[in-house]
Design a binder for these strands. Structure first.
Length: 426
RNA sequence: GGAGGGAUGGCCGAGCGGUUUAAGGCGGCUGUCUUGAAAACAGCUGUGGCAGCAAUGUCACCGGGGGUUCGAAUCCCUCUCCCUCCGCCA
């Protein structure tokens, strides 16, 4: 949610930003009109309420003094006022709801540093790092490797739950668990994050807080009976931890890391990435979430990226950092960088992390504030999050980069302590 | 799932239709006194919206929503959450 004052005071600027974002459906003019109407009603209705409050008190006084005739006359007069108030309040409620809805559909403003572009083709590769391995045999895609090793079972996954589900077995399951634990340990012990184990189903307002609703409900699973939603990422419960709170002075910055499964319907991507484990309806992820002071936003984003990048580097897999252009920016993000691992088997760069700075956009929606100093007025925090990292795609990168001619896969050095010392999956 | 009891300001806790601008206490802040501190005494004490250059004014908020009334923390309906007991359960 944007600060409505920005729209009110500088609508032209906001419209230009919306054009950069390709957000041509953003209801800026609607917001302006509704805001004006709202304020005009407020002025009228508040004046009437002030009068009613004063006269009601007067009625009480008259009754106590036994002047019931005067009281009755005043009552009759106030009944008229009350009726007018009721009508104005009803209209105000409609306007408020419409304004809220319109505001909810306006995306965040991009930082000035975000490159302007129409879609993902204009994203900018910031840098490419790591050692590309030379293969003296044609590297296989992970779906062939995994199936041959008996560690990924696609058919039975489909039997259980339909397309885009798979089963990990034996050292495949172990490898994923090792990655999760290792990543968590690195972030907790070396990057200063506090681990969180959140609920994996949440109520609707949590999804509103992070910006997934109302616009992106199509991609979510929902339990209609209890009105709970399966989380598409741990970002949702973790960001909402401090919803409707005013954090006391000295609380910031807060760094959290959480492991969670993620559930996505992926209806928007029907037919895309159907092979392998790149895009499933359920996947695991380690997610970092930060709450920081506004002045620290951009510096914290850089540190967040560095923390995610550290995982890639230690895995010794080639990766690149890509900055999203305005046309490819997520709804709630002010800036967003992806980390992509190279997968030589399927010949693709795999998005394993998405690091975003939201400024106060999510904090407004979720009402997360902090008090800069004792007695100071509350301010909205800035929120950030980034994957650290998404498991299936890291698994793909490990399997494909560490494969050997005989179809076995070497376990990366850093994971061996988490694999009971296993050095090769064969 | 069944039965009952609750939800009031940072915290505790009164209030059950109109001198409540939410009593009182605790905590916190400021001041007086003091060499300093404590104690005592006095004053202050939340969030948001709107109008205004500002001082300030005004409205809303007693778990959420709706209703009754000239007037609701207070009465009615409804939802959510918490607690106690029973049942079931990894």
């Amino acid at each position: 949610m944007l600060d409505i004052k920005i729209i009110r005071e500088n609508p032209q600027f906001v419209k230009e930003q919306m054009a950069k974002l390709q957000a041509f459906d953003a209801p800026v003019d609607q917001v302006l009109a509704l805001d004006e109407e709202r304020r005009s009603i407020l002025v009228q209705v508040e004046e009437l309420k002030a009068r009613r409050n004063a006269e009601s008190k007067r009625i009480g006084q008259l009754l106590r003094e036994g002047r019931s005739e005067e009281a009755d006359a005043l009552k009759a007069e106030m009944a008229q006022v009350a009726a007018t108030i009721e009508a104005l309040d009803a209209r105000l409620k409609e306007v408020d709801a419409a304004l809220f809805d319109a505001m909810s559909r306006i995306p965040n403003l991009p930082l000035p540093s975000v490159p302007v572009g129409k879609d993902d083709s204009e994203n900018v590769v910031v840098r490419t790092e790591g050692r590309f391995r030379e293969f003296d045999f044609p590297p296989l895609p992970h779906w062939e490797l995994g199936e041959a090793l008996g560690i990924i079972d696609f058919e039975r996954g489909v039997k259980l739950s339909g397309s885009r589900f798979y089963v990990l077995k034996g050292l495949g399951a172990r490898l994923q668990r090792a990655l999760i634990t290792w990543m968590l340990d690195v972030h907790i012990h070396e990057h200063g994050y506090t681990e969180v184990y959140p609920p994996f189903v949440v109520r609707e307002h949590c999804l509103f807080g992070t910006g997934n609703l109302p616009k992106f409900g199509d991609n979510l699973y929902r339990d209609v009976e209890d009105d709970l939603w399966l989380i598409p990422t741990a970002e949702v419960p973790v960001t909402n931890l401090y919803r409707d709170e005013i954090l006391p002075p000295g609380s910031l910055p807060i760094y959290h890391v959480a492991y969670s499964p993620c559930f996505r319907r992926e209806r928007m991507s029907a037919g895309k990435d159907v092979r392998g484990i790149k895009r499933g309806h359920q996947f695991d992820k380690v997610e970092m979430v930060k709450f920081v002071e506004p002045e620290q936003g951009e510096a914290e984003l850089e540190k967040l990226i560095a923390d995610a990048e550290d995982i890639c580097r230690r895995l010794d897999v080639p990766y690149r950092l890509v900055q999203m252009c305005t046309g490819d920016l997520a709804f709630a993000a002010a800036a967003k960088f992806d980390l992509e691992l190279w997968a030589p088997g399927c010949g693709e760069w795999l998005e394993v992390s998405s690091c975003s700075l939201f400024n106060d956009f999510q904090a407004r929606r979720a009402n997360i504030r902090y008090r800069p100093a004792e007695g100071a007025r509350p301010r909205y925090v800035y929120t950030l999050n980034g994957s650290g990292l998404a498991l299936p795609r890291v698994m793909i990168a490990v399997l494909e980069n560490y494969q050997q001619r005989d179809g076995s896969v070497v376990v990366p050095e850093v994971l061996r302590p988490y694999m009971g010392g296993v050095e090769v999956i064969r």
